[in-house]
């Protein structure tokens, strides 16, 4: 097990539910010991991807390499190292204590159970004395989520996958889940992959982000996606008509390509020293949200142009010079040629 190998390497993954393609990943690496955020709307393929990373779901096509070795589901080598906390974690109809040690019993690792349960419960902010012997139905949503997390943490997993871990919990639980997850990485070098709708929370915990749209992966994090319908104007250009009259000119797509993405680096702000001149799409909107990237201290800003949201990334200096704040009206630009279709 060398650290030169990424925790995961996915190659040419395709997966379908019936005839509908739900996952289409050409290449994806997740570094060992990294904390990766997974951003995407409902039905984008997030949960499917997480199940695949947990080896609970076999892709229809493609290969998954775990630390350099190709693996598939149910192989004990990975089954016991990777664990997934599902969106609605299922607690077994047993006591909290029994729920937490379930995984250990499978691993026949049953020394000092009480002490270990005590430790892991305190990590997720629950008191052993008052919680260990509660029944599964005597817990609030946040408590149940934390118990489920404790049942994973006690396994000291190499990889911890969290699917919307704070979607239905209170603020206090959200904080405790964040803290406990970070501790796992710091203590044992656990690789974390976290999917969440709460971008603020996600940016505060993850080091890099992957966004996923209709099963397609964008490793640079959240990007601007423009969906149809489009109008064709000549061979080389497509137009997206906008309710407030600002048309977007896009280069024509290739065959079977339906959606357009504009990368963060290709979106410019006026005035910026760039020449927002002829041939550029010029759009005015207002800043809707700003997130700080934990690792790089860059700022990811979401700008609403009518009902389309554009995502762009700024250095701290740039952000300062533009004097950006949520609600500020700004003008954006991008070149039709910079659009990528998929």
């Amino acid at each position: 097990m060398t650290h030169t190998n990424p925790a995961y390497h996915l190659k040419n993954i395709r997966h379908y539910y019936g005839s509908q393609k739900v996952l289409d990943i050409d290449d994806l690496n997740i570094k060992t010991g990294s904390i990766t955020g997974l951003i995407g709307s409902n039905g984008s393929g997030k949960s499917t991807l997480l199940k695949m990373l947990a080896f609970a779901l076999k892709p229809a096509k493609g290969q998954i390499f775990y630390k350099g070795r190709e693996e598939s589901g149910f192989s004990p080598t990975v089954r016991l190292k990777v664990t997934l906390l599902t969106q609605n974690p299922y607690l077994l109809k047993r006591s909290v204590f029994e729920n937490i040690i379930y995984g250990l019993k499978i691993r026949k690792d049953t020394n000092h159970l009480e002490a270990r349960v005590k430790t892991v419960l305190s990590t997720v902010g629950l008191d052993y004395g008052s919680f260990a012997h509660r029944r599964w139905h005597q817990l609030s949503g946040g408590e149940a989520q934390r118990v489920a997390l404790a049942a994973r943490l006690i396994l000291k997993p190499e990889v911890l996958l969290l699917d919307e871990p704070i979607a239905s919990v209170d603020t206090k639980s959200a904080g405790l889940i964040r803290k406990a997850s970070l501790k796992a990485r710091d203590d044992w070098g656990t690789t974390l992959v976290i999917a969440s709708h709460d971008l603020q929370w996600l940016y505060s915990i993850t080091e890099n982000q992957i966004s996923i749209f209709n099963g397609k992966i964008f490793p640079g994090g959240i990007e601007t996606i423009i969906t149809g319908p489009f109008e064709k104007t000549g061979d080389k250009a497509f137009v997206k008509k906008h309710a407030n009259g600002q048309p977007l000119i896009l280069k024509a797509p290739g065959p079977n390509e339906e959606n357009a993405v504009i990368r963060k680096k290709d979106i410019l702000i006026e005035p910026s020293g760039h020449d927002l001149t002829k041939g550029i799409n010029r759009l005015s909107g207002h800043v809707a949200a700003m997130h700080l990237e934990k690792e790089t201290h860059h700022i990811v800003a979401t700008v609403l142009v009518h009902d389309l949201s554009f995502v762009l990334k700024l250095t701290p200096d740039q952000a300062g010079s533009f004097g950006l704040y949520p609600g500020k009206n700004i003008t954006l630009g991008f070149y039709p040629g910079d659009v990528e279709w998929f």
């Binding site: 589901g73 089954r79 997934l84 299922y90 379930y102 499978i106 049942a151 994973r152």
Partner: peptide, 19 residues
């Protein structure tokens, strides 16, 4: 979610069945 939970806790086919 039960089956998924059990797999994610490392359960094999036999454990999943009995649980």
């Amino acid at each position: 979610d039960l089956k998924l939970t059990l797999i994610s806790l490392g359960a094999g086919k036999r454990h999943i069945l009995t649980t």
